[in-house]
Nucleic acid binder design. Structure first.
Lengths: 371, 371
DNA sequence: TCCGATTTGTTCGTATGTATG
DNA sequence: GCATACATACGAACAAATCGG
């Protein structure tokens, strides 16, 4: 206890304990302490450094050294390793792995830990996942909302995240009620682009298949309708097929079969909710010996590797999978770090990111044959 | 991470984690480290100081600095939540998401936390990931080995896992040197099945494409050769094409183009390392107006959704993706819980799981046409 | 038991970089 | 743009503890 730095340390600690320095108050600068104790700056730094390590103080470059608030610090975990949770709907979907990949590479490079949870687009699972996250020490959450088109009964869990000061951002879709920070595509414009492309190629009988338990599908459908209105193409109500994720392997196929068997008004083009659906509908057209794009044009969505896997390279809408994952990671890291620096300055407003859909034209669409 | 002291710190930490410094061993003196890193003593002291603070090292004046023994230090019954880390090669591959999904659903139901890491089949990334895992409190690890066909320079990290009593199991492949618990397919038998099927259909000129930086590929190639021997079909050495993961998008395609352009001995069948490759090679046969399976038969591996995405439904080998993930999860949970229960009964020997490959015959293979 | 070499601990001085207000 | 405050880095000196001979 005879060393100079130890004396300085003791004195500063005393000031914290006797209330001279109250929580979050700026203490004397290193320069002032130097003069006050008549020691070198290095000595001050050693003393302050130990106090910082022990959790009594915190430093901010350019601003000063501050007295820590030890009350809230009580549950302090030992490692400073941060955890980010990613909540997905389907891990094995083709677009989510890419999103995760983008996020994981950014996060792990910065020493973050990535935990994943999947809800299977099921509300109960989402609840379980959110409870689990709330009871651990997660520092930030990236979430793709489950059944985003519906009112979410788990909304309180998200409010709880806010109350616990855990930042979260939503990707692909978001719950309207929450108005959260989010990164989404302009799905309406995407659906519009899909449809307009077909209309411009002369198609008038365009079936649209949309998964409407997620907002993505609802918005794409809106875009589909809008494109028809804009170009004054009448919409046949039978041509709008909506389905839920549970039905995605059956309903669209049955409906398409029906439409293709119809005696009149047979569709000449198909707008699909995504590439996965487009590719699986191709089986039906193949069975019927229909040539794509000669007999029927088809447009996918997401520009996944499925779009190029088949003999018919799909015209589709580009989804910024990896970029979205990385951008989400970047954003959550900023939020977490700003959150962790105890200076509560006016937080810079982060902005939602809206990705512009871009139509990728390949060989699955073509000008309609004149009769 | 750009600062000098941080580099020094990182390097020292690496030496602790990779076993260069074992617990209680004296590490290099400050003087030696100065020379070694070409930095001042101050810098060394800052780096070592932080590691001491984090519990990796301890110093003794006059004696030296020593590697701390962390496993005895493991007296933290803080959270009852357990963490499982899954290390993958490529998150966005088509089989890994399914494996993760299987594991995630089992683990999260049992209150486990799932963290994922991806190495991109790159040794340096694997090292980074393992260091990160060793620095946290992970309770169990499921790992798909990186570059499993080669001697792994990160092997010491796995020994360190053992020393720290963290169970790990390997899936899809394993490092021979470690003899770990593992869940793998019988890839040799799989390659054998692919090839034998073609031979039985009368094919004699069978090209094989194998990714040989992972054991899976090496073993499948073995099976390919074995099938030829068994049926006394001579092997044309030019017909065995091996490639590394970095080349997977180019080399096989170039080689196939060459073979198909040859004047004589044109192959009549193709054995592929996996469905992804098979599907992408289909582009080449399509461009050459070759009919599958009339002109060429092709066999994939994994029975992924790609196998059914194209116009040619692939004959392929079934990979128990989800089951493997779930089984791995079940196994690691057992190991972790047995580990944590204080009763140290003779641990029941867990057994490796060897999945039998099953050929799924679809439309991409057919009996060779007689001339 | 003491010595001297080694190793960590403390302290000072100085310089430059970078973030903040 | 500028002053202030902390961050990183180099060099030097002496103190205190350890250890082998």
């Amino acid at each position: 206890m005879q060393t100079k730095y130890n004396k300085v340390k003791q004195e500063i600690k005393t000031r914290i304990l006797d209330g001279t320095y109250v929580p979050n108050q700026k203490i004397n600068s290193e320069n002032e302490l130097m003069k006050e104790f008549g020691v070198s700056r290095h000595t001050i730094r050693v003393a302050v450094g130990e106090l910082v390590n022990e959790g009594w103080l915190y430093r901010e470059q350019g601003a000063g050294t501050f007295c820590a608030d030890r009350k809230t610090n009580e549950k302090k975990p030992k490692t400073n390793k941060k955890n980010i949770a990613i909540i997905t709907t389907f891990i094995s979907d083709y677009i989510f792995p890419s999103i995760i990949r983008g996020a994981e590479s950014y996060l792990s490079e910065r020493g973050y830990n990535v935990s994943i949870y999947s809800t299977n687009n099921n509300i109960d699972s989402e609840k379980r996942v959110l409870e689990s996250i709330l009871s651990q020490d997660v520092d930030g959450v990236i979430v793709e909302p489950t059944k985003s088109a519906f009112t979410n009964p788990n909304i309180n869990y998200y409010f709880n995240l806010e109350r616990m000061n855990i930042p979260y951002i939503m990707i692909n879709a978001f719950y309207e009620e929450l108005e959260p920070l989010c990164l989404v595509m302009d799905d309406e414009k995407g659906g519009y682009a899909q449809t307009e492309h077909l209309i411009e190629l002369g198609h008038k009988n365009i079936v649209g298949f949309f998964q409407t338990d997620d907002t993505q599908g609802v918005k794409r459908m809106k875009g589909y309708i809008k494109a028809h209105r804009k170009h004054q193409v009448p919409i046949n109500p039978n041509y709008i097929i909506s389905f839920f994720s549970e039905e995605k392997k059956t309903k669209p196929h049955e409906e398409l079969e029906k439409l293709l068997s119809a005696s009149a008004d047979v569709p000449t083009a198909i707008v699909c909710y995504n590439d996965e659906l487009a590719v699986s509908l191709l089986d039906i057209t193949r069975n019927r010996k229909l040539n794509i794009p000669k007999d029927i044009s088809i447009v996918g969505y997401d520009d996944s590797f499925l779009a190029e896997a088949t003999e018919v390279k799909l015209t589709t809408v580009k989804h910024p999978k990896m970029e979205m994952g990385e951008e989400a990671a970047r954003m959550i890291v900023n939020l977490v770090e700003e959150n962790h620096s105890p200076s509560r300055k006016a937080s810079p407003k982060y902005e939602n990111v809206l990705y512009e859909p871009k139509l990728v034209i390949r060989q699955s669409t073509r000008k309609i044959e004149d009769k």
